[in-house]
């Protein structure tokens, strides 16, 4: 069933919202067709029916599914970077594990598309999107690794801890810093353990990022009710050879942990 047919059926069934009624399916079809030749410099207004269809299909699962399917098909069909950029932005809102993740995952290893694929994947709920990024991480080059590591950190993916931890010692400082930051964001006991272990051997140019990651991690542990683990982490930082503002932050953390109920 094409998007035109699906939306047409929805309209005929009278189940659509007022907004759906305002969306002309032929116009939408035309906009989707436009994407195939769309490039930098083209009139962005030509794609507006797609924007409107996203709003209109919010409460209409069948029409939304058809719209997503059409976007994924266009993405997989070989389009310009500008068109890929547009489609990924839309899949950020309407993409699902069932239909979009595979097509987006295919873009992760390409320097031109890796970020815009994450632009959608990072925000699509569910394990499938996380897994796609986790599995891509060892396969992408050092330039792309920090982005994927960061997205996994934002999603607080516990399963990524082993692979990210190994990257703490990466020779590329961007990769190593991203690994530290993401472990801090993940903020579990296992992440804390890895950060503490690495801190003992961290090079001077990673000192601040690792210390900050440990503080962020401790805050997350505290928020999750793991008072003693957070306090231990703060104490380690206070006793380490750290810049004064880090030691002060650790002291503050110790006090916060002590009075937290």
């Amino acid at each position: 069933m094409t998007i035109k047919e699906t939306i047409g059926m929805t309209l005929a069934a009278g189940a659509a919202t007022v907004a759906v009624a305002q969306t002309d399916s032929a116009t939408l079809e035309k906009a989707l067709e436009t994407l195939k030749t769309y490039d930098w410099g083209a009139d962005r207004e030509a794609l507006k029916p797609i924007d409107q269809a996203i709003i209109a299909t919010h409460d209409d699962a069948a029409a939304r599914k058809a719209l997503e399917k059409s976007l994924v098909e266009v993405l997989a069909g070989g389009i310009s970077r500008s068109a890929q950029d547009y489609v990924c932005r839309k899949l950020r809102v309407v993409g699902t594990a069932a239909q979009s993740v595979k097509a987006l995952a295919a873009l992760l290893a390409d320097e031109e598309t890796s970020h815009i694929a994450r632009y959608a994947l990072e925000r699509i709920p569910g394990e499938k999107a996380t897994k796609a990024m986790r599995e891509a991480l060892p396969k992408v080059n050092s330039k792309l690794k920090p982005g994927i590591i960061g997205s996994l950190g934002v999603r607080r993916d516990k399963k990524s801890i082993p692979v990210i931890s190994k990257l703490l010692g990466d020779s590329d400082i961007e990769v190593a810093n991203a690994a530290a930051q993401s472990l801090g964001l993940i903020g579990t006991s296992a992440a804390a353990k890895e950060l503490s272990k690495f801190a003992k051997k961290a090079s001077a140019n990673m000192k601040i990022s690792v210390a900050d990651a440990r503080l962020v991690c401790a805050e997350q542990l505290l928020a999750d009710g793991k008072k003693s683990e957070a306090a231990a982490m703060y104490k380690e930082l206070k006793d380490d050879d750290q810049p004064s503002h880090v030691k002060a932050a650790a002291m503050k953390g110790i006090l916060t942990a002590a009075i937290k109920k």
Binding site: H58, R92, V93, V94, S114, H115, R118, Y119, L121, E122, R123, I124, P125, K143, L144, K145, P146, G147, I148, I149, G150, S151, G153, V154, E174, V175, N177, A178, Q181, S182
Partner: peptide, 15 residues
């Protein structure tokens, strides 16, 4: 859907 708009993925190497 609204929660997807709470943030954006950042281009590497920014985290």
């Amino acid at each position: 859907e609204a929660n997807r708009l709470v943030d954006v993925a950042r281009r590497e190497p920014w985290v």
